[in-house]
Amino acid sequence: MSTVHAGARALWTGLMSPGIAVLLLFFLIPLVVVIAFSFGTVNDLNQPVLGFSTANYTAVFKPYNLAPVWRTIWFTAVATGVCLLLGYPVAYLAARFAGRLGPVIIALVVLPWLVDYLVRIYAWQSILTPNGLLPSAMDSLGLGRPNLAGNNITVIIGLVYGYLPLMILPIYAAVRDLPGQVIDAGKDLYGSPFSVFRAVTLPLTREGVLGGCLLVSLPMLGDFATAQFLGGPDSTMLGNTINQQFTGGGSQTVGAAFTVVLIALLALVLVMVRVIGRRRIGATVLGPEQQATVAVSG
C-alpha cells in the first residue's frame, strides 16, 4: 500500500515539474542572481562582475540615494492609510446596506481600473498640470493657474487611485461574511455605533483589512510609473531609482542593491502583517476571497 502511495506521490511531483521549472528559471534564480550581484562590482565597461564588495550598499546608504527609499516608505504608508479610510466605508456599505446594489458598487469600483494603468496615470496628469483641466477651470474662475502636479501629494493621489480597488475587495468579502446578528447584539447591549464598530466589526474584519493593506502596499513599494508621470524631481520613489540604475545608464550592481532593499521592505511589511494578524501570512494572502482579489489585480 505504501509503495502505491509513493508511486502516486512521485506522479504528482513529476507533473509539477514544468511549473517548478518556470518558477525556478524566471523567478527564484533571478532573485538569487540579483542578491549575488548586489555584492558585485562593475568593470571598465560598466558591466556587472560578481565579487564580494559592500560598495553598492555604501552607495545605497548615501543620503542622496536614501531619500527616495524614505519617500517610498512614507508614500506607501500614507497612501495605504488613505486607501483604508476611503475603502472601508465603501466596502462596508456595499456588503451590509446596499442590498442588491452591493455587487454593482463593487463592479463600478473595479471597472475604471481596467483602463490601462499608464493611461489612468496620464489622465490624472492631464487633469492636474498647469495646462490641464483643473488649473484651467480655476483660471477661468479667476483663481490663478496653479501647478497641481509634480509634487508628493499628486504622487500619493496617483498611488491611492491606482490601488484602491485592491483594498475594497478583501474588506467587502470580510464584511459580507460577518453575521449581521453580531452587530445587532452589540447594539442590543447599548453599544454606541462607534463602540460597536471598534469592539465588534473592526476585530471581526481584521483579516480583510490586513489582506487589503498587504495587497495595496506591496505593489506601491515597487511602483515607478506613478512618480515618473505625476511627481517632480524631488518626489521619486525606490522604483524610479531601480529603473534608472538598470535601464537609465546607471550601475546595474547598485540597481541590484536597491532591488534587495525593495525585497527587504517587502519582508518588513510581511512581518508587520504577521505580528498584527493572528493567522499565518499565507492564510492572510490566501483567504478564499483574497485569492480572487489577487487574481483580478492585473
Binding site: L31, V34, D223, N243, A256, T259, L262, L270, I281, V285
Partner: peptide, 11 residues
C-alpha cells in the same frame, strides 16, 4: 504573489 513585480522584473 507578494514580491513586488518591479523587484522580480529588474532581476
Amino acid at each position: 504573489l507578494v514580491v513586488p513585480e518591479t523587484a522580480v522584473a529588474a532581476s
